[in-house]
Amino acid sequence: MIGIFKSMYITFATMLRKPVTIEYPAKHRDVPQRDRAFPILLWDKDVDEPFCTGCHACERACPVECMTVTMKDNPLHADGKSDRRKIVDEFWIDYGRCMRCNICVEVCNFEAIAMNNTWAGHELSTFDRNDLVLDLQQLLAQHKQGKIDEWVAE
């Protein structure tokens, strides 16, 4: 009998504790700075172009082949405004395939890609899975608008 009373005691003691949960869709807890949602591209505000040169390093290293990159000659380089001779032309990432392993961020030589560390990177439910394939403008949008304080490991 003692064992059962002990169990009851713990159960009632827990009833008096403060709740540890929060009501999720209404409230969001803070995500840590290193939070890894999905990869996004970063925008070079000084030159007004993406950091990405379309070098295919991330595409080759990706374990699940979720990226497609193409490269073009940089028009701003011809005008003398930019140091980058080549620049990214098109960039697609299929968020439905991505396994969030952070390897693309590690291999990038230009620090042009980072993991989204905001709640916007997590709440991505769509009705059509094709909406999860993001193009260059969508990938750049968040950092362009200054919504991301990115964290990249040294």
Binding site: M115, A153, E154
Partner: peptide, 28 residues
């Protein structure tokens, strides 16, 4: 959940950490 929060703080992920690397760790 408390321990999971530590893992998230260190690695950035809640389940699939991908944090160890042959030779050491991905980051400090």
């Amino acid at each position: 959940e408390r321990l999971q929060d530590i893992f998230e703080e260190v690695t950035g992920e809640r389940m699939m950490y991908g944090y160890f690397r042959p030779g050491g760790l991905a980051w400090d």
